[in-house]
C-alpha cells in the first residue's frame, strides 16, 4: 500500500538532492519497506560514493560508508559476521557498474545473502554529469561531449542481465520511478528484494531507473518522460530472475 507520510525510518530533514532527483523518492520507498517489515532496529546498510554518499544523514538506521565500488565487499564483511541482520547496499551506476564491477559480480556469485538497491540514472551526478557505463547511446555528457558513440565509448552496460547468469543470484528485478504505478511496483520489488534476504535465499538486487534532471539537462517532468520513452527501451522493466 502506498504511504502518504514520512516513514519512521527516515530522518525528518531536507535532503541535499537536486529538485526532481530520484534518490529522495527511492530513499523513502526503501524506508517504507523497512518500516513495513519491522526491521529498522536490525538493519545495517552500506552507502556508496556518489550522490547518495550522505544517505546516513537521511536514514534512521545504522549506515556505514564504503570506498567507491567496494560496497558489496563491505556488506559481505558485515553480513557474514551478523547473519541475523538485514544488510543492504545502496549503489549508483558508477559505484556498481564501473569501479565496483568486480565486487558486485563476485558478491552475486558467492550468493552473499545481501540485498542491493542499484540506482541507475546513467550519469555520474556527484562529480558533474560525466558518462557512466549505463549512459545511453547518443547521450551527451561532460565526458561524452560528442555523445556516447558505441564505436568509441562502448555500449550501455546491462549489468543486471549479466548478473542473471550467476547461480548465486536469487532475485533480480528492474523497475522505474517514472510514474505512480511504477513507484508502487518499485516499492514491491524492494520488499521482495529484502524478503529474499530475510528468507536466506541469497543475493538479491533491484535496479531502479531514476531521473537526474540536472545532468540530463531537462526538467523533472521531462526527465520522467525520458525514462518512459527512451531509457526503458535500453533497460526493459520487469523481473529478470527469481
Amino acid at each position: 500500500m502506498p504511504k502518504f507520510e514520512k516513514p519512521r525510518s527516515m530522518k525528518d530533514v531536507a535532503t541535499h538532492y537536486c529538485p526532481g532527483c530520484g534518490h529522495g523518492l527511492i530513499h523513502r520507498l526503501l524506508c517504507e519497506v523497512i518500516d513495513d517489515l519491522g526491521v529498522r532496529e536490525t538493519t545495517v546498510s552500506v552507502a556508496p560514493v556518489g550522490c547518495a554518499v550522505l544517505a546516513y544523514d537521511y536514514w534512521d538506521f545504522d549506515t556505514m560508508e564504503a570506498p567507491h565500488g567496494r560496497t558489496p565487499a563491505v556488506a559481505t564483511g558485515l553480513k557474514r559476521v551478523m547473519p541475523d541482520k538485514l544488510v543492504f547496499t545502496y549503489q549508483g551506476d558508477g559505484d556498481l557498474a564501473a569501479i565496483g564491477t568486480s565486487e558486485i559480480i563476485h558478491a552475486g556469485n558467492r550468493g552473499e545473502n545481501i540485498s542491493v538497491i542499484f540506482v541507475n540514472n546513467g550519469v555520474y551526478g556527484m562529480t558533474g554529469g560525466q558518462m557512466a557505463p549505463t549512459t545511453l547511446k547518443g547521450q551527451t555528457t561532460a565526458t561524452s561531449p560528442h555523445t556516447r558513440r558505441v564505436e568509441k565509448e562502448g555500449y550501455p552496460l546491462k549489468i543486471t542481465e549479466m548478473m542473471a547468469v550467476l547461480d548465486g543470484v536469487a532475485y533480480l528485478e528492474r523497475t522505474s520511478v517514472d510514474s505512480y504505478a511504477n513507484i508502487i511496483k518499485t516499492k514491491k520489488a524492494i520488499e521482495k528484494c529484502f524478503r529474499a534476504q530475510l528468507e536466506g535465499k541469497g543475493f538479491s538486487m533491484v535496479e531502479i531507473l531514476s531521473p537526474c534532471p540536472t545532468y540530463w539537462g531537462m526538467s523533472p517532468v521531462e526527465s520522467m518522460e525520458r525514462i518512459r520513452n527512451e531509457v526503458v527501451k535500453e533497460y526493459p522493466l520487469g523481473v529478470i530472475k527469481g
Binding site: 545495517v44 552500506v46 556505514m64 563491505v74 559481505t76 564483511g77 558485515l78 559476521v81 565486487e103
Partner: peptide, 9 residues
C-alpha cells in the same frame, strides 16, 4: 573491504 565491514560490526 570485507575486513572493513566485519570490523565495523
Amino acid at each position: 573491504n570485507m575486513v572493513l565491514g566485519s570490523s565495523a560490526a
